[in-house]
């Protein structure tokens, strides 16, 4: 067994994987883990090289575009301690191409695909559950606290959809934000966030939506369990229709 360490950032992990796959003819005999700087830590540290990371990603995109997509969503999950699984997933992906995602009996493939699937699912969910509020200056703001770092693909989705309006997304958990105005999509961080004042007609529109939400349910078919399993309560905090319940 050959042991390697990396710094645990996405660039660091990917550049280490790139190097390992280049140097070892049998990566099955290699393990990779995140450096924790403990006294007895064993293994050779591989320094971060963004170019190497990028290189690996483009190779993967070419040989196995589905696997590259899986990797993208895996990264959004910000999971720690999975560098070794990632190494062996990418090794398998470069070997088998896109059908690798079906190789779920392989433990590393299963680990990566499972985490990636969760991030992709939350992104899909948030495309529906995100709620914008109209602000006094006419812009729209949506706040969220997702489990995964999905602001980038989410903002892209809304840049195709809500093109004609000026809007912001704000991830309260990570203090990251995205804005769209007149065809320009931007990303950044907000350290000091104060909730801005709402537009004067905002409450009126919200009341309409709340009324609709109430009447659209068929009383004879009430099913709160089903509602919660489809729409977990952790998302209710920012749902306009669930305010004041």
């Amino acid at each position: 067994m050959v042991k390697y360490l990396c710094d645990g950032t996405s660039d660091g992990t990917l550049s280490a994987i790139g190097l390992i796959l280049q140097e070892h003819s049998d990566p099955g005999l290699v393990t990779l883990s995140e450096r924790e700087d403990t006294l007895f830590e064993e293994g050779m540290f591989i320094a971060t090289d963004p170019l190497k990371a990028e290189d690996l990603f483009s190779r993967l995109k070419e040989k196995a575009p589905d696997a590259a997509r899986t990797l993208y969503f895996f990264m959004l999950a910000e999971q720690e301690g999975m560098a070794n699984s990632l190494l062996h997933y990418i090794e398998q992906a470069l070997q088998h191409g896109d059908k690798v995602n079906g190789y779920l009996t392989h433990p590393a493939v299963r680990d990566i695909v499972t985490v990636s699937r969760k991030a992709a699912r939350e992104l899909h969910r948030m495309k529906g559950l995100l709620r914008f509020e109209k602000l006094r200056d006419g812009a729209y703001l949506a706040q969220m606290e997702p489990d995964h770092n999905i602001i980038q693909p989410l903002a892209y989705h809304f840049s195709r959809r809500l093109r004609a309006q000026h809007w912001f997304l704000y991830d309260r958990k990570r203090r990251t934000a995205s804005s769209w105005n007149k065809g320009e999509l931007r990303f950044g961080t907000i350290e000091q966030f104060t909730t801005p004042a709402l537009s004067e007609d905002e409450k009126e529109v919200q009341a309409m939506w709340q009324a609709f939400f109430k009447t659209i349910a068929i009383p004879d078919r009430k099913n709160p369990r089903l509602q919660k399993s489809n729409m977990p309560m952790k998302y209710w905090k920012y749902l306009t229709e669930k305010q004041g319940e």
């Binding site: 899909h124 495309k127 529906g128 559950l129 939400f213 109430k214 659209i216 349910a217 068929i218 009383p219 078919r221 009430k222 099913n223 709160p224 369990r225 089903l226 509602q227 489809n230 729409m231 749902l239 229709e241």
Partner: peptide
């Protein structure tokens, strides 16, 4: 895309 689920659990 489903945007919400009403009290009867329907999307």
């Amino acid at each position: 895309i489903c945007h919400s689920w009403s009290d009867d659990g329907r999307c």
